[in-house]
């Protein structure tokens, strides 16, 4: 059974989409930070630690999709890791709930420098539909410095990919 499945997949055409161009908006945002970029030569293989800082879990679903056969994030040298200690990039979602603020700060502190912080989703940008709540700080940049925003509710895997590719370009 297993060998049949594997064989079939060798014979079928791959599902993977061609590499998109990096997002223009992301390149512009990163270019504005060109001065600190000089200190951040991390190479073209980036380890990503995902942190949910209060998301509705919609953003997580699309981040997961980056690993499927269509987007195959690892072909670009990106790779999700289990610990912030191993990470070059923090990929943060959610409007930063008050209850997650400290955990986010600690995760950020545990990530070795140099590092990139990417705020994902409309929530990550400014709190999205949850902005103004007593329980949300609203926007990742209100808690830790953010290098790149990838807005959307949730951003599609393609938008995420274009944003992340801009990180590679910016180095």
């Amino acid at each position: 059974m297993r060998s049949k499945l594997l064989l079939q997949n060798l014979l079928r055409f791959p599902l993977t989409v061609p590499a998109p161009a990096p997002s223009e908006a992301a390149l512009a945002e990163l270019a504005a930070k060109v001065n600190d970029n000089a200190q951040r030569r991390l190479g073209r293989s980036l380890s990503i630690r995902e942190v949910d800082a209060g998301s509705c879990n919609g953003c997580e679903l699309e981040i997961h999709a980056l690993n499927n056969a269509f987007y195959d994030l690892e072909r670009f040298g990106f790779h999700f890791v289990a610990s912030p200690r191993h990470a070059d990039v923090l990929l943060v979602t959610g409007p930063v709930t008050a209850n997650m603020k400290q955990a986010l700060e600690r995760t950020h502190a545990a990530t070795p420098d140099p590092k990139w912080v990417v705020a994902v989703g409309d929530c990550g940008r400014d709190g999205g539909v949850f902005a103004g709540s007593y329980a949300c700080i609203g926007g990742i940049s209100a808690v830790i410095p953010v290098d790149l925003h990838i807005p959307g509710c949730p951003p599609t895997p393609m938008q995420l990919l274009q944003g992340l590719l801009a990180l590679l370009e910016a180095q």
Partner: peptide, 11 residues
Amino acid sequence: LGYVHKGIESL
């Protein structure tokens, strides 16, 4: 639990 409490009912 409660880490992702967003205050939805108040909103």
